[in-house]
Design a protein around this nucleic acid. Structure first.
Lengths: 238, 238
DNA sequence: GGAATATTTCGAAGAAATTTCGGTTTGAGT
DNA sequence: ACTCAAACCGAAATTTCTTCGAAATATTCC
């Protein structure tokens, strides 16, 4: 497993670990987006219009109820033209989140650079996840409610990006264990599940019911609580 | 309240709080399943065969890729007959989890009766959730990966049953707050999100990757950890 | 600038799946 | 055995997805 190697490759001397961190973030914010590049400018515009329209329609109707014709209309093209860009509706749906994920990772990479400690980085990650969902609600609806849990995402580019989301957390959790403020007794994967689960559940509830009203505030609260709870746990155990 | 009293208490003589508990569990394990009752025996058998076949096909192919024809074939009937039972594929998919959910709640109701403390009840609930998913993996695949997160479950019978899942947790969390071992400082809904999220994330990961290998064991570990962490938090705060 | 070439677009036809409909079969009650 | 509603099915209609060949638009090269 690449993550373990990256993490293992650092004794007590510092620079190596930052290197691993940067390489991880670098890698995940630059996953190749599409195999085929569009040649003409008009085509690039069309591609963008498809993505925008599709996001709109998917978020409104859900993937399975959405009709290609509606998406095409929203993008101002004919349905058959859409097939020049994506080989099926499913293909389009699974490609859609990639750009946003990359954007999120990139934004996080920059923001995290100002944070010195692992704890701050972890907190930022959780808080930014919730906040990104709030800022891009249509995308989040598609991503958290339809795509993330989907069985069929395995063996796609998207699958890697979703795993990246976990990899970052795992990196930070392992570092925290190293630093001694997350319990060594606990399986790191379990800790990651706890963190991811807590934040995601909050996001999902917000997407479905717009409750809690202020997702940024609740996300921050939840994130701080999760981390502090892990700290207390480690102290109680150690 | 003393553990002995609770254990000794019979349902008919139960104190006020147990009454609320029993009524809640009673209510949620007896939500009306279908509006229309089938008249003939053969029809009841057919209905059962449709449900079994649909579960099989949905779990294998996912809802959107599943074909009515396949489900009908699996049930040994023609596609058009299926429409005598369900008005659409979606309708069928949303009806499917109901019976299992009721079964789970019923099983939990019985098992919880042997548990005296709120803490034990809560632990049991989380553990049983994970274990029920393991025992009914096809159902769980459909429920956790496709239906629960779906935007379109709102305004359906299923929606109530899903909410019930949270209501039980909320009841127990509030009781725990009353008893003083979950922090009063924290929003109960947030605590519920933390608990649900942690367990669900574990279940989802298992459904997708069969990791952790032993879901019962990991579920128990996670459940114990979640609860103990909340206890420590409350002690640290109080 | 204009012919040659490549890319992009679209309407119409083809495929695939869902859903409806009319009529036949089956079974419960008498 | 007869009656009638319930259950069932094949065929057709409908809806939506997808393919294809030709037309339109952009780019390249002389």
């Amino acid at each position: 497993m690449p993550v373990k190697d990256v993490i293992a490759a650092q004794p007590s001397l510092a620079p190596e670990s930052d290197n691993g961190w940067d390489r991880l973030l670098e890698e995940i914010s630059h996953r190749p987006k599409r195999a085929t590049e569009r040649k003409q400018d008009r085509s690039k515009r069309t591609e963008q219009q498809i993505l925008t329209g599709a996001l709109r329609v998917f978020a409104r109707d859900g993937i399975s109820r959405s009709r290609i014709a509606d998406i095409a209309a929203e993008a101002g093209i004919s349905a058959s033209t859409l097939y020049e860009y994506y080989k099926s509706k499913e293909d389009l749906a699974y490609d859609l989140p990639l750009a946003h994920l990359a954007e999120f990772f990139e934004g996080y990479h920059i923001a995290a650079a100002t944070k010195g400690t692992t704890r701050e980085k972890l907190l930022l990650y959780l808080v930014m996840s919730a906040d990104y969902a709030r800022e891009h609600a249509e995308w989040a609806r598609l991503f958290y409610l339809e795509i993330w849990p989907s069985v069929f995402v395995t063996d796609t580019d998207l699958h890697h990006s979703i795993n990246d989301f976990t990899r970052v957390l795992l990196f930070l959790v392992n570092e925290a264990i190293e630093e001694g403020w997350i319990s060594r007794e606990r399986n790191p994967y379990e800790t990651v599940a706890l963190l991811t689960g807590g934040i995601n559940q909050l996001i999902i509830t917000w997407l479905l019911y717009r409750k809690p009203k202020n997702l940024t505030k609740s996300g921050t609260e939840m994130a701080e609580r999760l981390i502090s709870v892990l700290e207390i746990e480690a102290r109680a155990a150690g």
